[in-house]
Design a protein around this nucleic acid. Structure first.
Lengths: 197, 197
DNA sequence: ATCGCAATGTTGCCCATGTCAACATCTAAA
DNA sequence: TTTAGATGTTGACATGGGCAACATTGCGAT
């Protein structure tokens, strides 16, 4: 092999992009550098992506998939109790964000037009649905006339993660944030049992 | 006048930067374009800022100041009741974020080294302190052994704002998010009265 | 089998940007 | 008034995104 045609350049480019964006922020992220890392000319990516944004969109979509998987793995390793499962999911979410700050940013702060990326939207929604399902298990049956509780929990976990990313973390802070996530879950669950929506 | 020297270029550059970043994202934000808008050569900004990042840092710092002011204005226009004041602050926070998405991003997702920008850190902390003060008024006295509740409330409001920014909004969604913010405040307050920290 | 075409890569180019260096102009203090 | 420092300007360089023209390859119709 080793021939003119790469075989599966698209995948290779995405892989290289993952590594690159992990080392530097998504701002410094460079199409040409991705190509270099894939051992390919600076224009080869254009045969597989419309441009830089398109690559970023693919990256974001894939990252969402991985986030969902990570969350699922998280709850799989947890006790049966619904609250524990929700906590585990929340912790997994936080952990994913902290461990993949640049990709997290690509997932939420990219500028591509979402309407053109149905896959992205699907995986985005899946994350919310996932969390919402766990939440339902934690609340008294029939207590969910709206989608608000799910969005509330998601937003809180997401906010903690965002702020955790924004503040550059020392190693000890990870613990603190985990406590915060637990506190968020507990507090919201308690509050949701008392507040009318 | 109209002379070689501008008079107060630094301020003019910041102003131009505000306008520019309002029109486009902070990624597309360009030092040269800022200079152009200030009617000045592409290298003039270097006499007032170390480089692009430095300008962004100044912008972020200033934006934080404005956020805090907006929040304060928000509570000033609210009823006396502590919970109402907290709600007003939260709404102001959300509103500021939605109305200034690009600057909001600059505030939280920039890559400059925070240690070099004491002003930035000060204004950042001020936002948290502000919120925390409002929160204390809403809780039973002596019930705050930790900083967790404040961070919790902040993170939730922030998360709603971030997700609101991330999802491009239709006009009707603004209402929904405001409801969400109110729900967050109510739910967290209720929960905080029942959960041990 | 072969011919031809579409897919995939490559090279070369253009323009914009961030930043450095050298030079120009102004202002204020000595 | 002179002159040094502050402030702007012009020019240059390296790098990046993206277009166009060309090269190579593999695959399907004949």
């Amino acid at each position: 092999m080793d021939s003119y045609h790469h075989g599966n350049l698209r995948a290779a480019l995405l892989k290289a992009a993952f590594q690159l964006i992990g080392k530097i922020g998504p701002e410094a992220f460079t199409l040409r550098e991705v190509a270099r890392r894939a051992g390919v000319s600076h224009n080869a990516p254009y045969r597989h992506f419309k441009g830089k944004e398109d690559l970023l969109a693919a990256l974001a979509t894939d990252s969402f998939r991985q986030l969902n998987e990570a969350v699922i793995r998280g709850i799989a390793g947890a006790v049966e109790a619904p609250v524990e499962r929700l906590r585990a999911a929340a912790r997994a979410y936080l952990h994913f964000g902290l461990a993949n700050r640049a990709r997290f940013q690509a997932m939420f702060h990219s500028t591509f037009d979402r309407q053109e990326y149905a896959d992205y939207v699907a995986n985005y929604s899946a994350a919310l649905t996932l969390l919402d399902g766990l939440l339902v298990e934690c609340l008294p049956p029939g207590a969910l006339p709206s989608e608000i509780p799910g969005q509330l929990v998601w937003a809180s976990i997401h906010g903690i993660t965002e702020l955790g990313i924004a503040a550059r973390l020392e190693d000890g802070d990870r613990e603190r944030l985990l406590l915060l996530v637990d506190a968020a879950v507990d507090t919201l669950l308690k509050g949701l049992q008392h507040v009318r929506m």
